[in-house]
C-alpha cells in the first residue's frame, strides 16, 4: 500500500458513505439518473397540474409549470357527467377476482408441475412456457369469438376469463416450489398433510413474499389492461376505468383538463398500491424479470 492510498482508505473505513466525495463518474451517473427520473415523472406531473388548471388556462396554451389557480372543476365534472363510479366498481371487481383466481390456480398448477410425478408434466410445462411467448393480442380475436359464443360479452365474466391466463405467475411459482428443499414436503407428509395442506399451509405461508409480489403485479396488470376490456365491454355499464376514460374524450371533444383528471383518477389505485407495496413491486418485477432473462 502506498502512502498516498492510506488516508483515502481510512476515510472510507471511518466515514459514512455520505461523507465520501463523489468522483466524476459518480456525478455524471447521478445527474443522468435524475434526468431520466425527471423525464419519466414529467408527463405525470403535467397531467396532474393540467387537471387542476381552470379550463381557460389550459386552452390558452400557456405552458406554465404551476397553475395560476387551483380548481377541481374537471374532477367534479367527470364525477357528475360520466359513469366513473360504475367503471371503478367494474375495475375493482374484475381486477380483484382476476388476481385471486390467478394466484390460486397458478399456485395449484405450479405445485403440481413442481412436486407431483404424472405423465405429461414436462409437456404441459413446455406448453405453459410457450403460452408465455404468445402475446394476448395474438389471441384476442379467438377470445372475442369464444366469449361472444358463450354470450359473455358485456359481463364481468367475459372481461375476467381471458385474463386468467398469466403463465409468468405459474412459472415464478414453479421456480419457487422447485427451490424449496424436498424435506419440507416429506416432513409434512410424515405429519399426515395432503397436497392441499402442503401447498396452502406449508409452501405458500413459508414465503408470503412471493405470493404478495405476484398478486401485486397481477392486480396492476389487470387494472391497467385495456385492449381486452375495451373489446369485451361495449356498453358503459360494464366498462373498466381505462376503457371508460376513452369515453370522456368522445363525449366532450378534446377537453384536456377533464381528460387529465380522468387519467389521474384511473391511475390512482395503481399509484396507491405501488406506494404501499413499493418494495414488493420491485421484488415482483425482478422475479418475473428473472424468468424473462
Amino acid at each position: 500500500m502506498t502512502a498516498e492510498a492510506l488516508p483515502r482508505s481510512q476515510a472510507v473505513a471511518t466515514g459514512s458513505r455520505r461523507d465520501r466525495p463523489l468522483d466524476l463518474i459518480g456525478i455524471v451517473l447521478t445527474a443522468l439518473t435524475l434526468l431520466v427520473a425527471l423525464a419519466s415523472f414529467f408527463p405525470i406531473y403535467w397531467a396532474i397540474i393540467t387537471s387542476v388548471k381552470p379550463d381557460g388556462e389550459v386552452i390558452s396554451g400557456s405552458n406554465s409549470l404551476w397553475p395560476g389557480r387551483f380548481v377541481f372543476d374537471s374532477y367534479i365534472h367527470i364525477w357528475n357527467n360520466t359513469n366513473i363510479a360504475t367503471w371503478y366498481v367494474n375495475s375493482f371487481v374484475t381486477s380483484i377476482v382476476i388476481t385471486a383466481l390467478v394466484i390460486v390456480s397458478s399456485a395449484g398448477c405450479a405445485y403440481a408441475l413442481s412436486q407431483l410425478d404424472f405423465p405429461g408434466r414436462r409437456i404441459i410445462y413446455v406448453l405453459i412456457l410457450a403460452c408465455f411467448m404468445v402475446p394476448m393480442q395474438a389471441l384476442i380475436v379467438n377470445h372475442f369469438v369464444l366469449m361472444a359464443q358463450f354470450k359473455l360479452l358485456n359481463t364481468w365474466a367475459g372481461i375476467i376469463l381471458p385474463q386468467l391466463i398469466v403463465p409468468v405467475v405459474i412459472i415464478v411459482y414453479k421456480q419457487f416450489f422447485d427451490s424449496v428443499p424436498k424435506e419440507f414436503r416429506e416432513a409434512a407428509q410424515m405429519d399426515s398433510a395432503g397436497h392441499f395442506k402442503i401447498l396452502f399451509r406449508i409452501y405458500l405461508p413459508m414465503n408470503w413474499g412471493v405470493t404478495a409480489a405476484l398478486a401485486i403485479i397481477t392486480f396492476i396488470g389487470a387494472w391497467n389492461s385495456f385492449l381486452w376490456p375495451f373489446l369485451a365491454a361495449t356498453g358503459e355499464a360494464t366498462m373498466t376505468v381505462p376503457v371508460g376514460i376513452t369515453q370522456v374524450k368522445d363525449a366532450y371533444g378534446i377537453v384536456y383538463g377533464k381528460l387529465m383528471a380522468s387519467a389521474v383518477v384511473a391511475g390512482l389505485p395503481v399509484a396507491i398500491v405501488y406506494l404501499i407495496f413499493q418494495r414488493r413491486v420491485t421484488q415482483a418485477i425482478m422475479l418475473s424479470a428473472g424468468v424473462k432473462g
Binding site: P181, E183, A187, M190, D191, W208
Partner: peptide, 30 residues
C-alpha cells in the same frame, strides 16, 4: 403404505422445521 400410516417419525438432517410456524405449531401440526 404412505409415510404417515407407518407409525414412524423422522428427523431430517436439515431438520425441515416449518419456518413460518412457532415451535409449538411445528410440534402440533402432525
Amino acid at each position: 403404505l404412505p409415510p404417515n400410516q407407518r407409525g414412524v417419525a423422522m428427523v431430517f438432517q436439515n431438520y425441515a422445521l416449518y419456518p413460518h410456524m412457532t415451535v409449538r405449531e411445528n410440534m402440533s401440526f402432525g
